[in-house]
């Protein structure tokens, strides 16, 4: 079981690292959002899964309720993350486009075409 937890943590940390590297590699705010919000969401899902697996196995072995509570709180955190993360990314992208930040190296921009800026 500890092998599975370690696997979850390694996958999670790997994707979180890639998210951080994406901030450095990508040219503008929109492409950076792809790396910085989504790769880290995927990474955080796996680190939370590690916590959930740890909580439930400890609960099964020791029978102490606090480990079950730990796992349930990690599940609540995971749901909150899945709901708030896309909303935040969408708000940042829309705000950036409204304040006139155009996507760099873009091949097409239908939104700017609608607003007559392209």
């Amino acid at each position: 079981m500890s092998g599975l937890i370690a696997l979850f943590l390694v996958i999670g940390i790997a994707f979180n690292c890639l998210g951080a590297i994406a901030l450095y590699r990508f040219p503008d705010v929109y492409t950076r959002l792809h790396g910085a919000t989504k790769a880290t969401t995927f990474g955080s899902i796996f680190t939370s899964l590690g916590v959930i697996a740890y909580g439930f196995t400890k609960w099964a072995y020791t029978g102490e309720a606090r480990f079950c509570v730990l796992a349930i709180h990690a599940i609540v955190a995971l749901i909150a993350l899945l709901l708030t993360n896309p909303t935040g990314a969408h708000a940042i992208a829309k705000a950036a486009h409204r304040s006139g930040v155009m996507p760099k190296r873009a091949v097409v921009d239908r939104l700017a075409e609608r607003e007559g800026k392209w």
Partner: peptide, 12 residues
């Protein structure tokens, strides 16, 4: 939200 959570696509 589904589109935004999938990397590579972001609803603006």
């Amino acid at each position: 939200n589904s589109i935004t959570l999938t990397p590579g696509t972001l609803s603006v």
